[in-house]
């Protein structure tokens, strides 16, 4: 009996997965985004191997060297160097690591807390729900970046604190989403069935209901991933995120901002890196949404 259910659910899952991939791969742009993202992830993982220099190594005789193709540029510093003679390319490659990890951790933190609170709010109702939702409303009443900024001011500037602050501002959207899905699912037959079968609230919440709300959560997670990278960079730019000499992309722009006119490459390339990474994730996110959201599937 048990093995039979397991088998069925396995084949259902694999069936779902195949269907998903069918729709996802139909979008060339989504696949392109995914490939690019995989590339960036690999770059981040193997940053030590592929970057030509150490990110913090200061070549003091080679400060503010322009990129290789510009007059005065050198092949060994392909994207040029910054004020202290550090190789921009190496810094950007290593920065990918920080930005991706920051984005991922923000999503994991906000999603896990948000889903938990959302499930509880949707499942329990009553005053617990009211409190949770009012707290979330309060967080949402203050613009996200401002909220994060003040939180970081409290916690102290730094990458970790920036991630925590951003995660807090992202939590309400996960809570709302999970709560809404939970409330829809609660009235469905299969939930009633498990209830009758005597499933406890934990089992109901996590085993029965949660898997069925996954699709919108995955889409929301992907979108949050890209905005988390943007917001981490924005905090870095304002001097409240990762602290120099850490090569986080936003921090790179901030630390070189006074060279904006005399050495524009120190500002341009980190920005392009942010833009491309975020664009790739968003392309992938669009594909995911189309593949997972049955309503939009055929439109």
């Amino acid at each position: 009996m048990t093995s039979l259910t397991a088998k069925t659910s396995y084949s259902v899952r694999s069936q779902q997965w195949r269907e998903f991939w069918f729709y996802f791969s139909a979008s060339k742009t989504a696949v392109a985004g995914l490939c690019f993202l995989i590339g960036v992830v690999l770059m981040a993982i193997f940053a030590d191997v592929i970057s030509p220099h150490l990110p913090a190594e200061q070549y003091r005789d080679f400060t503010e060297i322009p990129p290789a193709w510009m007059e005065g540029g050198q092949m060994r510093f392909f994207l040029g160097t910054d004020y202290a003679g550090r190789d921009m390319l190496s810094r950007i490659i290593h920065g990918a690591r920080l930005s991706l990890i920051a984005g991922a951790i923000v999503v994991i933190m906000s999603a896990s807390i948000g889903v938990l609170l959302g499930l509880v709010a949707g499942f329990q109702g009553g005053w617990i729900e009211t409190i949770i939702m009012r707290v979330m409303d309060t967080i949402m009443a203050v613009p996200g970046l401002l909220m994060a900024l003040v939180l970081v001011a409290v916690l102290g500037p730094g990458l970790l604190n920036a991630m925590v602050a951003i995660a807090i501002t992202y939590t309400p959207s996960f809570v709302r989403l999970t709560r809404a899905s939970t409330m829809t699912e609660l009235n469905k037959d299969y939930v009633t069935a498990s209830k009758v079968a005597g499933a406890g609230p934990m089992r109901l919440m996590f085993i029965s209901i949660l898997p069925n709300c996954m699709a919108p959560l995955i889409v929301q997670g992907t979108l949050s991933f890209s905005t988390a990278i943007l917001d981490t960079a924005a905090l870095g730019f304002l001097g409240m995120g990762a602290q120099a000499p850490l090569p986080e992309w936003g921090t790179l722009i901030a630390e070189n901002r006074d060279l904006m006119l005399s050495a524009p490459w120190t500002v341009t390339f980190p920005g392009i890196a942010i833009l491309l990474a975020v664009l790739a994730i968003n392309l992938m996110g669009d594909g995911l949404r189309d593949a997972l959201d049955p309503k939009l599937k055929r439109s």
Partner: peptide
């Protein structure tokens, strides 16, 4: 996907 602080610069 634009980091607007960079876009402005």
């Amino acid at each position: 996907s634009m980091p607007i602080f960079w876009w402005g610069l």
